[in-house]
Design a binder for these strands. Structure first.
Lengths: 243, 243
DNA sequence: GGGGAGAGATGCCGC
DNA sequence: GCGGCATTTCTCCCC
């Protein structure tokens, strides 16, 4: 345990990214209170002093500390302790390790940003540039507009010169998508002093309740898929040798 | 590279949790398309075949595959490749490693669930059991009610026997919290055929715009903190020796 | 830093 | 499976 403690302490001091495989229990106190009983997990301490506790299953960390935490390492009665504190956020996390399977660390550097295609913004741009996707007569005015009354995805006119507010969703549109649109339409009606403002949901799908609510409010729904420029991995493409 | 490949393949086959420190680039195709240029990262493969790519900073994985993906490992021209597929979800992820800093793996077992205090549900229960927290005359009827017209946190009567719907938020209540409450109140008015239904937001704080919207709709706001039963780490408590 | 809204959201529960 | 909704949401962008 002592040599692990030294190793972890040194790695943190050198701003390395540390990985620990261990059996531990975890207590968290901050925005909420949490206790995780003894079990085998992965602990990760990043170079920005983020701390993550990962169980051997699932996507999300089960416990964590945000960047800029301060970590203390100690050994007591054959157990390895990591106490992590973020005084500014009043968050505290304690890890009590009964067994350490492995410790590894390395100075990792990575300034790269991810490039994503197929976001809601990409959908807005696609509709703005191809208005016929939602209606043969739609004439777009603006997109991704940050206004005081809300963030409007696409804005334009229909064939009768009514203003149309389009709310895009890259996934199944739900009730909150409709209430969001409703909020924009109401604000805009008030602002323009006109009742002739239309609302439209553009999404691949819509839940039945959301569809009903949209109908009740006179909003229309158009099925639109988010754009994907690169259609790779065709069915017949050969894959790398598996094992 | 070859020995790393063998090590990773064997670990995956044995359902171990694998950690790789490496320099890599990542491509993802599925719900969206994503590309992450070459940089130094941590790759984690869990026993349920979740795959995570973590940059050395930040909380969330930059790339990932959900559980039940199938991973292939290969070496070509001195590079280590991991190709991960989830055919059911039509998701694909490719990792191209230029350099491997370390590989570690271990069979981790953990069936434990986390216990959390201070959730929105805890807030609902607290208000239900201590109605004077929101008003001296509030009489609670039910809590956490899954109804057809919505999921109502706390439901009760005020001193004038008006029905009151309380929406709890454990954080700063925002516009969507108000629209959510508005939806419940409207549905309930329709259902009961009465206009005397009150709406109330119970949260530690409320944003200025949300407060205005609540006022416009005749909803009240009450400042309530989420419960925290264990107040540990008092200011003067001694901490473990730091370094 | 607050406010607003998206996310390849994730995860939980109920039907 | 879908639907509704919270999350120690996280993250980004704008004011």
């Amino acid at each position: 345990m002592d040599s692990f403690a030294v190793q972890i302490r040194d790695a943190i001091r050198r701003n390395e990214t540390v990985v620990i495989g261990c059996e531990c229990e975890v207590e968290y106190s901050g925005r909420a209170e949490a206790f995780l009983p003894m079990g085998e997990r992965l602990i990760i301490i990043k170079s920005d002093n983020t701390l993550l506790v990962h169980q051997p299953e699932g996507n999300a960390p089960i416990n964590y500390m945000k960047p800029d935490a301060k970590h203390s390492v100690a050994v007591e009665d054959g157990r390895l302790y990591i106490r992590s504190q973020n005084l500014a956020l009043k968050e505290y996390l304690d890890i009590n390790m009964r067994k350490v399977h492995f410790v590894n660390s390395h100075a990792l550097k990575d300034g790269q940003k991810i490039q994503i295609i197929g976001t809601e913004k990409d959908m807005s741009e696609m509709i703005y540039n191809n208005p016929s996707l939602i209606s043969p007569d739609f004439r777009p005015l603006s997109m991704e507009e940050h206004t005081k009354y809300g963030f409007i995805d696409v804005f334009g006119y229909d064939k009768d010169n009514n203003l149309v507010i389009v709310e895009c969703k890259r996934y199944n549109a739900d009730l909150s998508a409709v209430t969001q649109l409703r909020r924009y339409v109401e604000k805009m009606k008030k602002l323009k002093g006109t009742a002739n403002i239309k609302g439209m949901i553009a999404a691949p799908k819509i839940t039945s309740n959301a569809e009903q609510m949209a109908k009740d409010w006179g909003f229309s729904f158009v099925a639109v898929e988010p754009p994907k420029y690169k259609e790779r991995y065709k069915k017949d493409q050969k894959t790398l040798t598996h094992f």
